[in-house]
Design a protein around this nucleic acid. Structure first.
Lengths: 174, 174
DNA sequence: ATTAACTTTCAATATTTATTGAAATTACTA
DNA sequence: TAGTAATTTCAATAAATATTGAAAGTTAAT
């Protein structure tokens, strides 16, 4: 007797598309634009280096977009360019280790977001003014926030600096 | 002998403005819009509950904007509304504990961002196809990513669920 | 029940951010 | 060094997101 197949076994092109799409969406909410996240996803899946042309075609993005985001990924040290003898074309690839990306995001966001606000919170500590009550509340709240932000900063620093497992080992311990 | 004062001691209104501005900017990059973050900052500093009118005036935002973001903050359980006898106006206040906000952000982002991609990554695991090599690479990469994302999910869950100190105690241990 | 004070809603608008595409530039081969 | 195949740049454009403001809705005191 035959049984029904309850779930559709996803075919590769469909799965690939879903994967890249999802990764692009996630990237958007983590300070990475869609194209950048999708290029990275595509390179993660690729079994060999890709050209700009191939990336443009697969992701349906413009040359300028592909170029700019590839450059950003290279600046982040996540993507590498390689040349081949007798060819003008450049080939791009990425390491398969996700944690490189995660660490780089941490580093980048710390720099772009946390560092500036810590600076402001520190400056603002020296407040003075007529309204005793308001000033006290201000000092309390901003000091509190500063300490919180510094902790987050330290967390991101550690995360950015160490090997991929340290962080999650720590968590399972807890 | 007189000495120079090397650094300007910031006056309260200036400090307040800097604080609110910085907080608004930070909020923007953490999935909270500027108005929402600034309203929260303003309420943090306030020594007593504020009306919509006062918030609008202080932050120079429209009534609609104030209203919508106050509602969102209330939905997040971070801001409370209070009524006063003989008054139609509503007064808003927030608890002074930053970690309430942090936990709520964690909860919200987990739900909005991590949960959906975990779903996709799980679905996509059952991939099959002609190209053995590509399919293998795909399985490896997506499984890896799934495990990574699940760890992040579990981290955010724990963070969202526990008291404010657990997380940072954990970090200092490390 | 009426009024006036206040809140809510949401289409229109503004702002911010990402993407395009074509011109300028560069680098490889012959 | 000329020809061309590629990359880079960036002003213009599109897409996504946040904000406005005025009309509609609500509520509480009279």
């Amino acid at each position: 007797m035959k049984t029904f197949t309850l779930f559709w076994r996803m075919q590769y092109p469909e799965a690939k598309h879903a994967f890249i799409h999802a990764w692009g969406t996630l990237g958007t909410s983590w300070g990475i634009n869609k194209a950048m996240a999708q290029i990275h996803a595509l390179l993660l899946l690729a079994t060999e280096p890709l050209t700009t042309e191939e990336i443009m075609k697969e992701l349906r993005i413009s040359r300028g977009n592909a170029n700019m985001n590839l450059r950003a990924l290279m600046e982040w040290g996540i993507v590498k360019k390689e040349h081949r003898k007798g060819e003008r074309k450049e080939y791009f690839s990425t390491g398969k280790d996700i944690s490189d990306l995660a660490r780089q995001i941490a580093r980048e966001r710390k720099r772009r977001e946390l560092d500036p606000i810590i600076k402001v919170l520190e400056e603002v500590q020296s407040v003075s003014g007529e309204n005793r009550k308001a000033v006290n509340e201000f000092k309390k709240v901003s000091a509190d926030l500063l300490s919180y932000t510094q902790k987050a900063e330290s967390l991101l620093s550690k995360f950015a600096a160490t090997d991929q497992n340290w962080f999650f080992r720590l968590l399972t311990k807890a």
